[in-house]
């Protein structure tokens, strides 16, 4: 008697639990779709009107779409005399060097901040955050004077150096978050098993911090790629990058500006999509940003 009474209840409870699980599961899928749709809406949708601009010839109020189309703007972008591709290459080169330098400097700095307690650590953290907090224009005016004296103004190395001012803090902070969750005993274990210092870095440390490096590098690349004020002031018009070129066309020729914008945005979107799997919420690197 007792058995028959208990059994259906237990089965019932199991059924409810299973149903509950299923519902939660479907919520997760819905959430993912909302996320993807949102991402597309905010990232891709703004590019659509830009693209429409770039192929329009006549587009006046109140027409929803251009009344006449033309490939003029794209021809202008591609023709050699405007050297858009050259400038794009320049911009990419600067951004890549800036990213590489940010990794080289930011990873060790982040390791020190994330793993060790030392005197003046708070001060160092504030110094690293300062370039993000203080308006860039104020900083760069001071730097400009210094760079002129050092012969770094109006040159690509100067521009690369000044781009590090906003990129390094991001790289360092992301990496300090990664290292705060990192167990250095893994490195000791590898050494003990016979791995040299270098092999340990390559086989143990790097795979563990790789997602963080990707996220930090992404920040660095995009910040450098879209930098306007710093490039303008330190480059002094001698160093041309896409943002500078784009800004010049915004007033004079919206069609070309539209075409340039597409060229400008595409690499950022591609980089973002390539690294999207490292940007998921349960990633330690993203968690690190949350810790700031």
């Amino acid at each position: 008697m007792v058995d028959t009474k208990i059994e259906p209840t237990a089965a019932g409870a199991g059924g409810v639990a299973a149903e509950d699980k299923e519902r939660r599961f479907s919520w997760r899928i819905t959430g993912r779709w909302v996320g993807i749709t949102g991402l597309l809406a905010f990232l891709v949708a703004p590019i659509v009107p830009l693209f429409v601009w770039s192929i329009s010839f006549r587009w006046f109020y109140p027409a929803i779409l251009p009344t006449e189309y033309s490939a003029r703007a794209w021809t202008e972008v591609i023709t050699p005399h405007n050297d858009v591709l050259g400038v794009a290459w320049n911009t990419a080169l600067i951004a890549l060097v800036v990213t590489a330098l940010s990794i080289l400097l930011g990873v060790p700095a982040g390791r020190a901040l994330g793993l060790y307690e030392f005197r003046g650590k708070r001060l160092v953290e504030w110094m690293i955050l300062a370039p993000i907090i203080v308006p860039g224009l104020a900083v760069v005016l001071g730097i400009h004077v210094l760079f002129i004296r050092a012969g770094l103004s109006n040159s690509i190395p100067g521009v690369i150096l000044v781009h590090l001012v906003p990129t390094l803090p991001y790289m360092t902070l992301v990496m300090s978050g990664v290292f705060a969750n990192y167990d250095t005993d893994f490195e000791l274990q590898a050494r003990s098993l016979g791995a040299s210092r270098w092999a340990t870095q390559r086989l143990i440390t790097l795979p563990a911090i790789f997602p963080g490096v990707v996220v930090g590098a992404l920040f660095a690349f995009i910040i450098s790629w879209s930098q306007y004020v710093l490039t303008l002031l330190i480059g002094g018009g001698q160093v041309q990058t896409l943002p500078l070129l784009l800004f010049g066309f915004v007033r004079s020729d919206p069609a070309i500006a539209g075409a340039l914008s597409v060229v400008f945005i595409l690499p950022a979107v591609i980089v973002l999509l390539l690294s999207s799997r490292y940007l998921s919420g349960d990633n330690a690197a993203v968690g690190g940003i949350g810790n700031i």
Binding site: F186, L188, Q189, A190, R191, S192, L193, A195, I204, A208
Partner: peptide, 20 residues
Amino acid sequence: IPPEDRGAVMVFQNYLLFPY
């Protein structure tokens, strides 16, 4: 002698299997 050449291998309390 650096740890990798000592031939004294340590097994840590929390195993530390390389997750990757």
